[in-house]
Design a protein around this nucleic acid. Structure first.
Lengths: 212, 212
DNA sequence: CCTCCCTCAGAACGGCTGTTCTAACCACAG
DNA sequence: CTGTGGTTAGAACAGCCGTTCTGAGGGAGG
């Protein structure tokens, strides 16, 4: 298998297939490709398509007209792959999350590199994390997980056992001996110390988005 | 023209075409549709396709195999519209933008509410805007425009006429009598004063994105 | 009942389309 | 020179595919 780079002709074929798909919504025929790339013989197109398939640039379905599908980088359908992240409410230090009705939720579309599937977002209320550069009104993208590393910014739920019942909070989490410190990033505010048993980590902040 | 709603059969046809497209990447043939919907005659499929085209549910290309394209709501390609924003380089206070080769650019997908078409993004280098909560490594989304209001955070280009030739900078912009003040958000840094003639506003920061 | 219109079935036609076969050309190594 | 492997061209084949024609049910209105 010659794993050399594609010939000029082959690159033009892949590019043309993508253009054709964008324009028409269906793949080109072997003869369409030949005409576009300047190949008079269908067998030569077929030859190059077979080669491109072996190299992993596309997939073909035998005996099916227009049975060509681009894969990987060439696939312009997946060039628009994105993650949909619902903004499910507002969070403020030490108060319950203000949930938003599902039908009123904003939905953010984000690159998969920014937020993986399953994430949610919360709008931040207040300046309790201002020294971590999270402002009032910012949106934090949260990846759901029940554990967190020391120093992670997490959405934590204080259960009834604690002295702050049923409240959600956005804080940095630090484990200390037999307790957990929830540290705001605002020197005007004091940390909260809780029993690990009365704390439930809801998720970790993976991104911050601010609109101006 | 009977603008009544679609028959059960016709709804199933539209739905099948969408499913087929999602699965295969190319549209079905008339016979594929017939098989899926339980129609033995190609003429009946053709008849219903013509009807669906007249009602605006799809477009067809005559005499072209698989020449079917869903339009409007049925078009799953356009589901979840987003804006593609290229990260075209890095910007630091008072240094030229470090451009990135086009093929190496990251591309962010963002909700249209976050960034309209035509925006670009820059990765921030340094802490010159730290007091505006823009950190080293953050990404700023910039809407191209040549004017700016007082206090806007802008990407500004200092042209050769000025004492800081050919440099781009990220600053807050304030117009003062016969000069412009470019104000960093870092008390350790001093503002730059420039002649309005030697300043070109490239765009305004509309969003800040931070990954953690 | 008859007629008209919409919907449907089956068959056939002609062109489109993927595939294959043969042959040629070229660069390169033996 | 000769042979070999990679690439291209042209032609032909068989099957796929959109289209069209004929005809038939079936309900609405006369």
């Amino acid at each position: 298998m010659s794993s050399t780079r594609l010939s000029d002709r082959q690159r033009r074929i892949v590019e043309f297939i993508g253009d054709f798909l964008d324009e028409h919504g269906y793949p080109p025929t072997v003869r369409d490709i030949g005409r576009a790339v300047g190949i008079s013989s269908t067998s030569v197109v077929d030859y190059n398509l077979k080669r491109l398939e072996r190299e992993g640039y596309l997939k073909r379905v035998r005996d099916v007209s227009r049975g060509i599908e681009l894969v990987g980088d060439g696939d312009r359908r997946s060039r628009g792959a994105f993650t949909e992240v619902p903004v499910i409410g507002r969070i403020a230090a030490g108060e319950p999350i203000e949930a938003v009705e599902e039908r009123d939720r904003d939905r953010l579309l984000l690159s998969p590199s920014l937020a993986e599937e399953g994430c949610f977002a919360l709008r931040v209320k207040g300046k309790s994390m201002i020294e971590d550069l999270i402002d009032d009104g910012d949106v934090v993208v949260v990846r759901p997980q029940s554990t967190a590393d020391n120093g992670d910014i997490v959405v934590a739920l204080l259960t009834e056992a604690s002295d702050e019942p049923g409240r959600a909070t956005l804080k940095r989490l630090y484990r200390e001996r037999d307790r957990v410190r929830l540290q705001p990033a605002n020197s005007a505010l004091n940390p909260i110390f809780v029993d690990p048993a009365s704390l439930r980590v809801q998720g970790k902040v993976v991104a911050v988005i601010r609109q101006m």
